[in-house]
């Protein structure tokens, strides 16, 4: 079945002359140089511009910051790959913590805490994957708290594909650039459609 299909595609490709023999240089695609300075500031600025909130704290203040962010909220799932960060996040969640071994239970959570594979300064994005994190902990609860280390910030989207291809090895990887959004009804912007209405980024120095 697939073979016959492939044979038809082969014939179709040959029916017209090849016009592009090599993929052109993508140099113009990059907007932020790898060696650019101030990536943390740029990331914070761009993440804020797309509607995420960025709190910059020292490593020592992580627990206090998480506690403050979690304080008004209930059930929390922790989907953090880094063991150290995972333990600290679980500690901060305390009695709010929900076991992270059941995708369906995510629907009853208010907060999902994750770390990230990397972040992108140029677009203000964070990148999460299912490697070591329960899938959709960053989508299903209405609030997503993402812990990002400054050292994880890549300059440009291009760098995700050039220098972190391993980030795409997971069954699922998502580049997140803002809270869940729609403007389907008369162009009015509404957040929190299916995914979280609020994305809190805790940026660790």
């Amino acid at each position: 079945m697939n073979e016959a299909f492939l044979a038809r595609v082969r014939a179709a490709v040959r029916a017209q002359p090849v016009t592009v023999h090599a993929v052109p240089s993508h140099a113009v695609v990059r907007r932020v140089a790898v060696e650019a300075r101030g990536l943390a500031e740029l990331f914070a600025k761009n993440a804020t511009a797309v509607g995420m909130r960025v709190t910059r704290v020292s490593d020592a203040d992580l627990n206090a910051t998480l506690l403050r962010l979690l304080e008004p909220h209930g059930a929390t799932v922790v989907a953090v790959r880094d063991p150290d960060l995972a333990a600290r996040a679980a500690k901060s969640a305390g009695s709010r913590l929900v076991a992270n071994d059941n995708a369906d239970a995510l629907f009853d959570c208010i907060v999902g805490i994750t770390d990230v594979e990397c972040a992108i300064a140029e677009s203000g994005s964070i990148v999460v994957s299912t490697t070591g994190r329960i899938r959709n902990a960053w989508i299903t609860p209405p609030i997503h708290i993402a812990i990002v280390r400054e050292s994880q910030i890549l300059a440009d989207l291009v760098d995700l594909f050039e220098s972190r291809p391993d980030a795409l090895d997971a069954a699922s990887t998502t580049i997140i650039t803002g809270p869940s959004k729609t403007a389907d009804i008369e162009g009015v912007l509404v957040t929190g459609v299916h995914g979280p209405a609020a994305v809190e980024i805790v940026l660790l120095a």
């Binding site: 995708a103 677009s123 994005s125 899938r135 990887t173 995914g195």
Partner: peptide, 24 residues
């Protein structure tokens, strides 16, 4: 399409759930 730098979610799918996964 919508004058955004990227869509909010750019999701990569690479196969079904893995043996160590609970969702997917």
């Amino acid at each position: 399409g919508t004058a955004q730098p990227l869509t909010v979610y750019t999701s990569f799918v690479r196969g079904p759930r893995r043996s160590d996964e609970h969702g997917g």
